[in-house]
């Protein structure tokens, strides 16, 4: 390797250094400290022995598996629904029509709005005595809040899903739209000249091009929802609560002996999301091959 090459290589690593420092230092560093605590290694609390007990305690507990299921199902449903709505939206937004600029703008509005704000808006709308219930009451369709379906603090987590849908449909939609606009109309036009039907153009030309974007945007959404704390805490049932809620509540308990358990839940959460990630990448590769893409 020549001196020139060596300098070049050094420069690249120097460019990467701050990012590596911050992310490996903070993220991976924090992860390692957390992993240590989950194994019961907490010198500050006088705990030095390493044990898997905190994991075993969790894995034999019914509540843990219920909680994991709740976490997964909220994340899975909201991702699936957002994706199913977002993709057609992206196609609609691609066309230019009268009012399309307004629609485009409206579609972007949810992007910068914090989840907490959305949560408050959704509660005041869909609670049993919320504005929608009042609307129905003023139309004479119901007389008591109890007659309105329970959408907040409910087992199915409808309000939680609504918050995520409101936030994530535009996110996935805009990512897909961005790719659609990069692709442009040329491929489709070419396919049309070659006699492809509308469905064929979508299935064999566009889909392979946008599938990576759909899959990776939905993966980001899934990971975000899977790890989120405040929305299920504010709008969900007390039990079973999603894993991040459980973990952080244990962490914040005055009893320091609960910390390793909190960390163990967090580590398991991390493990499950990595597992999911790996499976998802497999799926992605398979889907791409099947759809005839790269």
């Amino acid at each position: 390797m020549g001196r020139q090459d060596w300098m070049e290589r050094l420069k690249i690593w120097l460019m990467l250094l701050p990012a590596l420092l911050v992310l490996v230092g903070l993220f991976s560093g924090g992860l390692v400290v957390g992993l240590g605590q989950s194994l019961g290694y907490m010198p500050v609390a006088g705990l030095h022995s390493v044990t898997l007990q905190h994991y075993l305690d969790l894995l034999v507990e019914d509540a843990f598996w219920q909680s994991l299921w709740v976490t997964f199902s909220i994340a899975f449903t909201s991702t699936l629904l957002s994706t199913l709505v977002a993709v057609p939206c992206a196609f609609l937004l691609r066309d230019t029509f009268r009012g399309s600029r307004l629609v485009n703008f409206l579609f972007q509005v949810p992007i910068p709005i914090p989840h907490l704000v959305v949560a408050f808006g959704v509660v005041t709308l869909v609670a049993q005595s919320g504005v929608l219930a009042r609307l129905l009451a003023s139309l004479g369709l119901l007389s008591e809040p109890g007659q309105f379906p329970a959408l907040v603090f409910d087992r199915a987590g409808v309000a939680i899903q609504l918050v995520y849908l409101w936030k994530e449909i535009p996110f996935i939609g805009l990512v897909v739209l961005a790719v659609l606009q990069t692709v442009g109309p040329d491929y489709e036009a070419l396919a049309q000249t070659l006699g492809a039907t509308r469905w064929q153009r979508f299935r064999y030309v566009l889909l392979p091009l946008i599938l990576p974007a759909i899959l990776s945007a939905s993966m980001i959404v899934f990971a975000f929802v899977f790890a989120s704390y405040e929305i299920p805490l504010l709008l969900g049932v007390r039990f079973p609560a999603p894993l991040p809620v459980w973990s952080i509540q244990l962490y914040r308990d005055p009893d320091l002996n609960l910390r390793p358990g909190a960390m163990a839940i967090g580590v398991l959460l991390t493990l499950f999301s990595i597992l999911w990630l790996v499976a998802y990448r497999r799926l992605m590769r398979y889907a791409l091959r099947a759809s005839g893409g790269r």
Partner: peptide, 20 residues
């Protein structure tokens, strides 16, 4: 809610105010 869940104390204020 048939005891399916229990509210936060803050939420009960709203529930009582609206006759839920």
């Amino acid at each position: 809610r048939e005891g399916e869940t229990y509210p936060e104390a803050a939420a009960m204020t709203d529930l009582l105010a609206n006759g839920e």
